[in-house]
Amino acid sequence: MHHFMLANLLTEPVGVAHYMAVGAVLFVCGVLCMALKRNALGVLMGIELVLNGANLNFIAFGSRFLRGEGQGLGLDGPLMALFVIVLAAAEAAVALAIVLNFYNNYDSVDIDRADQLQG
């Protein structure tokens, strides 16, 4: 068992686990946003948080400062993070266009108003 000691909180380096802990918070916050927000744009913001939680993981797994040389994902980490950033931009552009289209048709961005399709 490896415990995070409060005693050496400031004098020792952090590890991948600490980054993952932050990533987990971002991820869960994002999931909660997706689940709880009624505003479509709020949901999109949740998605951005989720993607960033994953990105933080990728960066942590790839970083030489956190795991030492030659360990972990290596360059794959930052490269995947880079691609995720670009793909997220693309996704956000389309999602936003769709939300605006919805807004034009419904005069609302309330996800719960999207209820014409039920059966």
Binding site: M20, A54, N57, V84, A114, Q116
Partner: peptide, 30 residues
């Protein structure tokens, strides 16, 4: 209206699940 609603639902759910999938991918890679 229905078409835009379909697109909205598809995009929101699709992007959300893709995000969750990416997090899983990061765990596996790590």
């Amino acid at each position: 209206r229905r078409s835009s609603e379909a697109a909205l639902k598809y995009a929101v759910y699709g992007a959300g699940t893709a995000g969750v999938m990416l997090y899983g991918v990061s765990l596996l890679a790590g």
